[in-house]
């Protein structure tokens, strides 16, 4: 028996919007720790990892570990029927092939339940060890989204370089080139507007902008984004989900042949 009650139901809608461009089908894993997911895009270049900790739910009951295969577009269709202020409860019984989403309006005058068929999904799960990164950049998520969007109108790839001077995003295309440098800036009114660079050593990596733009669909989940870079590793783009967990994206770099 599984029963997860999330008062801030709109958060689940935002989580779905943050993943469904990258992944079509995924297994949601439910355990005592929380509600989680790991899925790769079809080309195995990018991976999304989600964790919503059990403590973040108003009510969390998960009698035994359960993996539920869902089509994210279908799940999104159902969640879009919930009001933005609705409380969402996810329910499933052991051994059934469906999941129920229950939507309650804040004053309890409307209650809806939507039952969705589950799917068998053969997904590969990658082991991702904790790593030391050469550079970690924290910046406003809206600023990162703006940079990725702007650069993708010029080129297909971005070189992200971190030096003592700041973090530089560069691209080149048929019509020309573009460079955007963000300097460390801690002297802002609000901490979420700061750009903070922790650098062990300079690092420069090339990534496909198409994937980074997909990652920025998570912007409504967090005011800030953390970008962790190391020359030997995929980049990690993390959006913290307040009081609940995170959505992390991993993207393998491009290398010059």
């Amino acid at each position: 028996m599984l029963e997860l009650r999330l008062v801030q139901g709109s958060l689940l809608k935002k989580v779905l919007d943050a993943m469904r461009e990258l992944v079509n089908d995924a297994n949601f894993d439910c355990s005592a720790t929380g509600f989680s997911l790991q899925a790769m895009d079809s080309s195995h270049v990018a991976l999304v990892a989600l964790l919503l900790r059990s403590e973040g739910f108003e009510h969390y009951r998960c009698d035994r570990n359960l993996s539920m295969g869902m089509n994210l577009n279908n799940m999104s269709k159902m969640l879009r029927c919930a009001g933005n202020d609705d409380i969402i409860t996810i329910k499933a019984d052991d051994g059934t092939d469906s999941v129920t989403f229950m939507f309650e309006s804040p004053n309890q005058d409307k209650i809806a339940d939507f039952e969705m068929k589950l799917m068998d999904i053969d997904s590969e799960h990658l082991g991702i060890p904790d790593a030391e990164y050469q550079a970690i950049v924290r910046m406003p998520s809206s600023e990162f989204a703006r940079i990725c969007k702007d650069l993708s109108s010029i080129g297909d790839t971005v070189v992200i370089s971190v030096t003592k001077e700041g973090v530089k995003f560069s691209t080149a295309g048929d019509i020309g080139t573009a460079n955007i440098v963000c300097r460390q800036n801690k002297t802002v009114d609000k901490p979420e507007e700061a750009t903070i660079i922790e650098m062990q050593e300079p690092v420069s990596l090339t990534f496909a902008l198409r994937y980074l733009n997909s990652f920025t669909k998570a912007t409504p989940l967090s005011d800030t984004v953390t970008i962790s870079l190391s020359s030997e590793l995929p980049v990690v783009v993390e959006y913290k989900i307040a009081e609940m967990g995170y959505i992390r994206y991993y993207l393998a770099p491009k290398i010059e042949e």
Partner: peptide, 14 residues
Amino acid sequence: WDTQLQLQGFYTNA
């Protein structure tokens, strides 16, 4: 030309 690497080149199956 840049070559796109895949995640399996960095991480192994769990």
